[in-house]
């Protein structure tokens, strides 16, 4: 007779009772822990409400009014009027297009270049520490400073970029890099790529370092080529790090302000959502309309966040 069958009916009430007691203990303990958790979280939540939720709600409220900066005139509630204007505002629509273009091109270039650099500084070679430090230099310079530096390098008359390109014979006549529409946006993208590729490389390097070495050994034993190893081991295992890096960079790029503000102030087809927002808020003193611009920027970025969070979750599953 199998032992399990014997007396199971006699044991059952005991087991049920035990389960009940355990569950009750768990609920009181759980409740207590949950309460403690809330108490401990309270300061953080208070700060979040103060610095994130309150400004957000205020901005949203302002976007429904015709408030002006520095004006004592009474504020009128105008409903969705600002948003209706915004949808027919050619400058804003152009700024959205410019920003998306800037984001896609700069982040893609940074991802590819960052990955290459990460692979190089991940491998063993003499002087690796020095190279790793040197790679970070562009990232360490404040954007306003480096953008100003590049502005001078791009100068059509005194700029070093024209000088170099003409010396090696790539250019016949100097180009006005930040003046010509089309060229200006790419000149700015180049500066952004120069500056933030190190950041991308650093995050990807961290991702590379957690990939177990024995996977590569096993692959080598099985006779997999370097190429095969990269696509079958490195790339899939780097995915989480890559996604995190992409989130950071995409959100940054969508909010791009300083590099454009310093180099062209939005001229020659380089106006971004953020530079336009500043113009409307500060230069035009349109607090209401400017808030509507802010809210739209918030939602554009929000869409990207949702997209990435989705991707990350799919990754975990």
């Amino acid at each position: 007779m199998p032992w399990g069958e014997m007396g199971i009916d006699r044991l059952e009430p005991v087991l049920v009772e035990a389960g009940r007691i355990e569950r009750r203990a768990a609920t009181t303990l759980g409740a207590r822990q949950a309460r403690l958790a809330w108490i401990l979280l309270l300061p953080t939540l208070a700060v979040l409400v103060g610095v994130a939720l309150y400004p957000l709600v205020t901005t949203f409220y302002n976007s429904l009014t015709d408030a002006r900066l520095g004006s004592s005139r009474s504020v009128q509630f105008v409903g969705l009027e600002n948003y209706r204007w915004l949808l027919t505002d050619p400058v804003f629509l152009e700024a959205v297009g410019n920003t998306l273009y800037f984001t896609v091109v700069s982040v893609s270039a940074e991802l590819v270049l960052g990955l290459l650099i990460a692979l190089v500084i991940h491998s063993q070679f003499p002087g690796r520490g020095l190279v790793r430090a040197a790679v970070l230099v562009p990232w360490a310079i404040p954007t306003v400073v480096s953008a100003q530096m590049w502005r001078w390098m791009y100068n059509d008359v005194f700029g070093v970029v024209n000088d170099l390109l003409m010396r090696v014979g790539l250019l016949d006549a100097p180009l006005a890099w930040t003046a010509v529409p089309g060229l200006a946006m790419h000149a700015i993208i180049a500066v952004d790529v120069w500056k933030t590729t190190p950041f991308m490389a650093l995050l990807l390097l961290a991702g590379l370092q957690v990939i177990p070495r024995d996977l590569y050994e096993a692959a080598r034993v099985d006779g997999a080529s370097q190429m095969r190893q990269f696509f079958s081991i490195t790339l899939p295992l780097l995915r989480p790090a890559m996604l995190v890096a992409l989130i950071f960079r995409t959100l940054d790029a969508l909010r791009v302000f300083d590099v454009i503000f310093v180099m062209t102030a939005g001229a020659s087809g380089t106006e971004s959502m953020a530079t336009y927002n500043r113009r409307v808020l500060i230069e035009f003193q349109q607090l209401g309309y400017g808030s509507a611009v802010s809210v739209v920027i918030f939602f554009v970025i929000f869409v990207f966040v949702l997209l990435y969070v989705r991707l990350l979750r799919g990754n975990e599953a």
């Binding site: 006005a176 930040t178 003046a179 062209t264």
Partner: peptide, 16 residues
């Protein structure tokens, strides 16, 4: 005028 004149303010013009 230089092609870059569309990026000049007072001081850039004066420099030249």
């Amino acid at each position: 005028s230089p092609p870059g004149v569309t990026t000049y303010a007072e001081e850039e013009a004066r420099a030249i």
